[in-house]
Amino acid sequence: MTTTTDPAPVPDLAALQRRAAARAAERAGGTDRLRGHIVCEGLVRIFKTEGVEVFALQGLELSVDRGELLAIVGASGSGKSTLLNILSGLDTPTAGVARVAGQDLLGMSARDRLNYRRRVVGFVWQQTGRNLLPYLTALENVELPMRLAGRRRGRLARDRARELLDLVGVGYCADRRPAQLSGGEQQRCAVAVAVANDPEVLFADEPTGELDESTAAEVFGALRTINAELGVTVVVVTHDHAVADQVRRTVAIRDGRTASEVRRTARTASDGSTETVSEEYAVLDRSGRMQLPAAFVDALSLRDRVRLNLEPDHVEVRPGQEASGE
């Protein structure tokens, strides 16, 4: 006779956040070093093509706490992928401040940048074929970054690779090559590869963009596990609202600047249950500038200029009206 047991309950968002913060504090050596793990101030990136300058980032401001799981959203061309490439060391900013785990990304030499990509950060691409070498097994793919960086060799590397594959739920794929894996299995293996060298930050560029809803949930579950169990700061660029809704903070980028962010907090309802409450904020930069949500602008037909009225506890924004005779 066989018996069945109920599956273990999935921790809620608040519990995962607390666990991630605790792991991050352990990595940092204390809670006093939890803030400002990623800092961008006045970040600018200009691309020049045939004499034409394109501003991909226009003074972007961003701060991410150590151990945070953050989603970045934005329309195509908003600058979110450019930001991710800069923070991961794949691109160089034109001006401003960009620091990750205490590393100054503007002042790095080519050698420092290579070491930064190998040891400080991990990266997961949207295209599954870019994350894994096709002629290596999943286990060998996870081992490879450790061997290249000289962090672990032999049995130590193999044992650590198996641990990471188990952690993201694909331990059974250890001896399979990428062609023998589904898209979701490939992406979860890619997450294990990205954290093989114990990075402080993991970046993921649309990691669920080519997956169906249920498979995408499994991949994002792997990212949440890495964040909660290892204390790794995770930054995900995504168009998937189902993913963005599962993180504490979602930052929206528009026209190369941080435009708004949604913060989610767990609150206890009157019946004792826990509910997640979302609040949206406009982002105010150091110069006092902010972007009004496009829906607000359209609803009030705001154009060219607006009137501001300072009240005791808020600022009114009204449509501008030309004086008669002008």
Rank of each mutant, 00 (worst) to 15 (best):
Q246N: 15
N141K: 13
D166V: 01
G129H: 15
T250W: 12
W125D: 02
T233H: 03
N227R: 11
L70V: 13
G77K: 01
V142Q: 02
Q291C: 10
L302Y: 08
G272H: 06
L132E: 08
I253M: 07
Q321W: 11
S88C: 09
V100Q: 05
A294I: 05
V73I: 14
G209T: 07
L164R: 05
Q127F: 15
V283Y: 11
L87I: 01
G79E: 02
T4A: 15
G320Y: 08
R152D: 02
T49A: 15
L292A: 04
E322W: 01
V234T: 06
M146H: 00
R160S: 00
R155Y: 03
Y172M: 09
F55H: 12
V317D: 03
A217S: 14
P93Y: 05
A295W: 06
L57T: 01
A56Q: 00
S301T: 12
E163T: 07
Q126L: 14
R162F: 08
L300E: 05
A24W: 08
V44N: 05
R188F: 00
R289Y: 15
V306Y: 03
L34W: 08
N131G: 02
A282T: 15
G67I: 07
E280P: 04
P178V: 11
A98L: 09
V297S: 12
L300Y: 13
T250F: 14
S214E: 15
F296N: 05
A71E: 03
L87V: 03
V237Q: 08
